[in-house]
Design a protein around this nucleic acid. Sequence first.
DNA 1: TTAGTTCGTACTTATATACAAAGAGCTG
DNA 2: CAGCTCTTTGTATATAAGTACGAACTAA
Length: 182
Amino acid sequence: MVEIVNIVASGSLGIELDLENVCHDIGSIGEYDPDKYPGMYLRFEEDAPLITLYRTGKYIVTGADSKEEAYSFRNRFLSLLAERGMIESPDDEWFRIQNLVCTAELRESLNLNALAIGLGLEKTEYEPEQFPGLIYRPAGADSVVLLFASGRVVITGSPDLDAAEQTFAALQDDVTDLLAVD
DNA sequence: TTAGTTCGTACTTATATACAAAGAGCTG
DNA sequence: CAGCTCTTTGTATATAAGTACGAACTAA
């Protein structure tokens, strides 16, 4: 079972903005400190996804845990700007999911040292003193996997759920084969 | 004895480490 | 022009820092 825990998506308003004005207009849900970072932050509610808006009109939505949530916050964001007359219409054909962070679980605890060799040293990185997880970059896949001794797994870098699920399915096969050999 | 202060231990919380992606802007 | 800043999120380690509480001590 692969579960999405975070989504990064981006889009473009197609127009340039004066972030100072925008932030002033939307009030307390906005935060803009150009000395600290060039983007303006917008969060509708506490713990809700964060939207980062740039001078160029490009923006990022981070923190959603489903595609629906990401799109819904994009819509709220565009509607808000449209209501204030900052944009013509609440549409954005450039909006797209860029990255998914998923978690999954292999049913048993793992020997990461053995796994690094089994999966291929050229595709893995495991330095327990630096980080407790094993980093695995499956050949041909567009996802990167972090494996932990507990059997828990993090799949990141995937453009969509199918890619993450395929990566996990392939990983499961590889791991069960390796365990069978032992 | 009791209130108040201070010290030490214990536990909690935070941070660093690593990964991916987008964006703007600054540094070297 | 490369690489860093920042943000999100799970995973798990060590370590740092910060809080809390009990024990011990002093003064009234």
